[in-house]
Amino acid sequence: MKILDKYIIKKYFGTFLFMLLLLTLVVLVIDVQAKAPRIKENGFTVLYALYAYYPFWIIYLIMTFMSILVFISVIYFTSRMANNTEIVSIISSGASFHRFAKPYFFASLFIAIVSLGVNHYVLPWANIQKNEFEPYTYNAGNREKILGSSSVSAQLSPLEYIFISSYNKKERRGSGFSYQKYDKNKRLIYLLNATEISWDAKKKTFIFNNFYEKTILKDDTEILKNGVTLNKSFGLPPEELFPSELLGQNKITPELIYFIKREKEKGNSHLNIYLNDLHQRTAMPVSIVILTFLALSLSSQKRRGGLGANLAIGISLAFVFVFSFEALKVVSENQTLPPLLAMWLPNLVFGPLAAILYFKRANQ
């Protein structure tokens, strides 16, 4: 490897790791101070949260802002090189701008590949730990929305439906249960009502108390049955039957793809939130390479205002990039844009912009 490559890669990773450590420490201190009262109110200590929650939360935070960290890091150290006329010296020695940019590409590609693996297989594991504790860092109202009881409904197939008047996902029990099954002509053929429902984790079945069962035959005759207790399985645990919005975050990519496929077969039309998560896992790592070249193009030339001007431009673009992802998620969840397009649209906009600025800079 050439001396130039080693020099730039060292600056790339050195600045990136410094920014990563700085962001982690600053945000961690601020977040702990803000959430400590609510953590204590729920019977936990801050010390417990520091090892049971925050390590996993930090992984989520880093992966969310990875491309922005890379972008600002590249702008920072490249601007310093430009202000010190190092880039002018390198180009004047006979190296082309494309040769100068080569180590940027390999360094960003390495981080992108690592991020790709983490997003698809490591981050879901961290999210399981994070999402389990996170409700206890919310205020009472938001915590109740997640841990409290609410009405739920589920579509098991195009012809099977479940309704529960009040269900607590944490305790896996509820009241006011109704299961309805129809034939191809949308005619009710089976009905199961129960005053209470609970999940037996050992037997992996649901327990229905004070149940009423009705089976309607082809000749419209009915078979009625009632009793105190009934065990019945729907083939899936409660978490899969009544998925939360965060369920997709907890699944590695093969599991998430299978889950989405199964939900489509069931007739679930509210899948965009899971599809957004699936496509973002790949789109974000690709943006690392795109933003690296955008940052290189913006900061490799000495300009009036120096480092401060470049950082101001970089932070502004970083804000636009992050905001666009979050805004497009909402747009996609409202079914205005397909999830694939929504999650790749920032790259489709910033990619050509980075290419235009890069070749413009290379030809100067």
Rank of each mutant, 00 (worst) to 15 (best):
L22I: 11
G43C: 11
H98I: 13
G176K: 06
P243H: 08
Y167R: 03
G94W: 10
P237L: 07
F259E: 02
F359Q: 06
S67L: 01
G94A: 07
F97V: 09
G117Y: 11
V330M: 11
F16V: 02
G227K: 03
T221A: 09
Y138V: 02
E41C: 00
I75F: 04
P103S: 10
S297W: 05
F100T: 05
I72Y: 04
I128Y: 05
Y182A: 00
G141K: 14
L278C: 03
F359A: 04
A318W: 00
L236Q: 14
P339H: 06
I189E: 12
W199C: 08
E134R: 13
F234L: 10
L271D: 04
S89I: 11
A34S: 14
A295S: 13
S233D: 12
L296P: 00
I207L: 11
I290H: 01
Y76M: 12
P158I: 08
A194Y: 01
F319M: 11
E171L: 15
E41M: 09
W344D: 05
S149I: 08
P55W: 04
S153W: 06
L188N: 06
L275N: 00
L69H: 01
I90G: 04
N231V: 00
T253V: 06
S151Q: 13
E239N: 12
I257Y: 10
L275Y: 10
P158L: 11
A354W: 04
V289L: 08
I252K: 10
T282A: 11
S73L: 06
I75Q: 00
K218D: 13
E144K: 14
L17F: 15
K251Q: 14
S299P: 03
L47V: 10
L275P: 01
N268Y: 03
F100H: 08
G174W: 02
Y12T: 00
L47M: 09
I30Q: 03
S165P: 04
I90A: 05
L278E: 03
K186T: 07
L217I: 02
Y51L: 01
F177L: 05
I3A: 10
S150E: 12
R80S: 12
P346Q: 05
K169V: 09
L307A: 06
N347H: 07
T137I: 07
Q129I: 07
S299M: 05
E222I: 15
K302G: 09
K11W: 02
L307K: 06
P285I: 03
E144N: 14
H279M: 09
F56W: 12
S96K: 09
